[in-house]
Amino acid sequence: MSSPAFNIRRYGPSSNVDQHAFAQWVVPLRGELAFELEGRGARLDRLQGAFVAPMAGHAQAAGEDDRFLIVDCPAALFDDDTLDRLRRQPVLALPAPVRAMAQRVGATARPQMDAATVQRELPTLLQAFSLSGSATRLQAVCARVERSPGEAWPVERMAAAVGVSASRLHALFREAFALSPQAWLSASRLRWARARLADSDNAIADIAQHAGYSEQSALTRALRREWGMTPAEYRRRHRPL
């Protein structure tokens, strides 16, 4: 492809593995996406997106009401260091400016954005995930939390992983994500639990424990507050046919 493109898409309950020669960002607008990239699974939602490097195999599944901003981008727009970093760590904590940009674009109700919109909004993505982006230094610790959300993650541990004080970590998270570190941790735990509810037969109490909740009722409260349903209801709705 010769120029970037912004598209609003929906996905069905399954897809074949796809590959393409251009880079691509996946930014959820509504709902969530079960995403597989080069054999690695992830669950994407409004706080977490993904970067698909050129020729990386990927597949996805979503509900019919879920919507996503898909940004196709020529690989030539990236310097080698940025492209390599995104290739190695493709699941991305979405900075607040990126989430706001996605909502602006999604509010237009057009499936494909015109060239003027692309030219105006693309710099937000390029800057957010550049080496100097406000969230770049936090991506590694966010990825560690995402892999093991059930572990104990006091702010001091997260701060040590970044190499800053606890107070500085709070400031960095607020600047990058408009969230506190503990709010990000809570979202990661709920995301992990949702994935296990959808793709396993594990007991709900076991899922809650391994996600880091003190008891099943804590998971139930969190899921009902954020998604309007109990764990059992979520499992029935999202279990593959």
Results as ranks from 00 to 15, higher is better:
Ala59Pro: 04
Pro154His: 06
Leu47Tyr: 12
Thr108Gly: 07
Ala62Gln: 01
Arg120Met: 11
Ala203Ser: 12
Arg196Tyr: 05
Arg174Met: 09
Met101Pro: 05
Ala176Lys: 00
Arg85Leu: 07
Leu131Pro: 11
Arg157Tyr: 05
Asp66Tyr: 05
Gln119Asn: 13
Gly63Pro: 00
Arg236Glu: 07
Glu32Gln: 15
Thr124Ala: 09
Met229Leu: 09
Met1Tyr: 12
Ile70His: 06
Gly133Ser: 01
Ser180Cys: 02
Ala56Gly: 06
Ser167Cys: 08
Ala50Arg: 04
Gly106Ala: 00
Ala166Met: 08
Trp25Ser: 11
Pro90Gln: 04
Pro90Ile: 06
Trp184Val: 11
Leu185Met: 04
Ala140Asp: 15
His20Arg: 10
Trp192Ala: 12
Thr117Glu: 01
Glu215Met: 11
Leu86Ser: 04
Gln216Cys: 10
Arg157Asp: 13
Ala187Arg: 12
Ile8Tyr: 01
Leu185Val: 13
Pro28Leu: 01
Gly133Trp: 07
Leu33Phe: 04
Leu131Ser: 15
Asn7Trp: 10
Ser15Cys: 00
Met229Gln: 11
Gln48Ser: 13
Val27Pro: 02
Arg194His: 02
Met229Glu: 12
Ala59Asp: 09
Tyr11Ser: 14
Gln139Arg: 06
Leu33Gln: 07
Arg137Pro: 12
Val91Thr: 06
Phe68Arg: 06
Leu69His: 08
Phe173Ser: 11
Ala211Ser: 14
Trp25Val: 11
Val164Ala: 05
Ala23Ser: 13
Leu29Cys: 09
Pro90Leu: 07
Tyr234Thr: 07
Leu44Asp: 02
Val145Asn: 06
Ala140Gly: 12
Arg120Asp: 13
Arg147Thr: 14
Ala5Trp: 10
Phe173Leu: 08
Val118Thr: 07
Pro154Asp: 03
Ala208Trp: 05
Arg10Tyr: 10
Glu38Lys: 08
Arg99His: 00
Asn16Arg: 15
Tyr11Gln: 14
Val164Arg: 01
Cys142Arg: 11
Leu185His: 07
Ala107Cys: 08
Pro123Asp: 04
Pro97Met: 03
Arg120Gly: 04
Ile204Arg: 02
Arg137Ser: 15
Glu233His: 08
Ser200Asp: 08
Gly212Val: 08
Ala53Thr: 10
Ser2Leu: 13
Ala34Arg: 15
Gln209Thr: 13
Arg87Phe: 01
Ser180Trp: 04
Val27Ala: 07
Gln48Arg: 15
Phe129His: 08
Arg43Val: 12
Gln48Tyr: 10
Glu175Thr: 12
Val26Ala: 14
Leu223Glu: 09
Arg157His: 13
Leu94Val: 10
Arg104Leu: 13
Met1His: 14
Ser134Glu: 15
Ala211Asn: 01
His210Trp: 12
Asp79Gln: 02
Leu190Gln: 03
Arg85Lys: 05
Asp206Trp: 11
Asp18Pro: 03
Arg237Met: 06
Val164Met: 04
Ser214Val: 15
Ala183Tyr: 00
Arg43Lys: 08
Gly49Pro: 00
Ser2Ile: 10
Phe6Pro: 00
Arg235His: 01
Ala109Ile: 07
Glu151Thr: 14
Ala21Met: 14
Gly106Thr: 06
Leu29Ser: 12
Val98Gly: 04
Pro111Lys: 10
Ala5Asp: 13
Gly41Ser: 15
Leu241Gln: 12
Ala211Tyr: 02
Val52Trp: 04
Asp66Lys: 03
Arg110Glu: 13
Trp184Ser: 05
Gln139Thr: 04
Arg88Thr: 03
Cys142Met: 15
Arg40Leu: 12
